[in-house]
Design a protein around this nucleic acid. Structure first.
Lengths: 156, 156
DNA sequence: TATTGTTATACTCTATAACTATA
DNA sequence: TATAGTTATAGAGTATAACAATA
């Protein structure tokens, strides 16, 4: 059997697309003064406010050491705030401030517009299928894109 | 309108999946002593032998400075070889050696097996659709996953 | 004993610029 | 003047380990 050409490999397509998205998103968010990771943080806090840094780090796929810096940056800009964690005195509860909520809305619009362009070559139905299949694959390989039930509600 | 949760964003899914694939592929290729990029190089040379370093760098999305090191590594292992370029004396023609062809076959098997597992949650039809849509999106955003017609055949 | 957050260190990776030899 | 390849340097980014406070 003859080997596949490079971009016949789904794996190569996926890494290439991932790099493409990351790079463009980074550029598009420069005017807002944040990076994709910061957007991710804000998004997670919109979903559930008051998470610990550890709880934020996991779905963002960054180490807790790095998270310190990310939280520092957004806190210094008055977008989020570290408060005392209600049940774990080791942890900080990270809370969204009004300015953070506003910036997130702007960033979300930028990201959404980018996605629309990126998927512009597909019909609405195809795009929906594409996203759906991506979610299925993500789940299958163990990427958590939902809040884990165990992490929802109680702040342990 | 309420903003999307983080992984409702196709863009976030794609970067996350891309990182996942890159990381796992890197691990899986360690026993073969190469990285995903090296696999990409070998794949491109299988498609068309004797490309210049510049011609290899573009589809791999690496700078020509970096390409120097990649070619060095594979050449020192006797997998590829720099020869005089037939029509451009500034350039090197990078050629695949038998050992390189063999290693590529092994690596290709590893990658293919990984892809099968990754897409194992989808039916065959769904997997085909997924890959097809990825190619469509790649093309739409300007990622070249085919040899550019202008680069095929003549070695300019 | 394990975990959260933090800091410092070392390491890797990358981007930039500069140089040569050709075109 | 522009391009292919090369090299060196500096900067960014990352991983590792260690520590204090708390569980």
């Amino acid at each position: 059997m003859t080997p596949q050409p490079l971009y016949g490999h789904p794996a190569c397509l996926m890494t290439r697309l991932g790099v493409h998205v990351e790079a463009h998103l980074t550029e598009l968010l420069v005017p807002l003064g944040i990076q994709p990771r910061h957007f991710g943080m804000l998004s997670l806090l919109i979903e559930q406010d008051g998470r610990s840094q550890h709880q934020l780090a996991e779905p963002l796929n960054v180490h807790r050491n790095v998270m310190v810096g990310l939280v520092d940056e957004l806190e210094q800009r008055g977008l989020i705030e570290r408060r005392r964690h209600p049940v774990d005195r080791r942890a900080h509860a990270v809370h969204l401030l009004p300015a953070g909520r506003e910036l997130h809305a702007e960033a979300d619009a930028v990201v959404t517009e980018f996605e629309a362009k990126m998927l512009g070559g597909l019909s609405a139905e195809e795009a929906a299928t594409f996203v759906e299949l991506q979610k299925r694959v993500s789940e299958h390989v163990g990427i958590s894109h939902e809040l884990h039930p165990g992490l929802r509600g109680d702040l342990r």
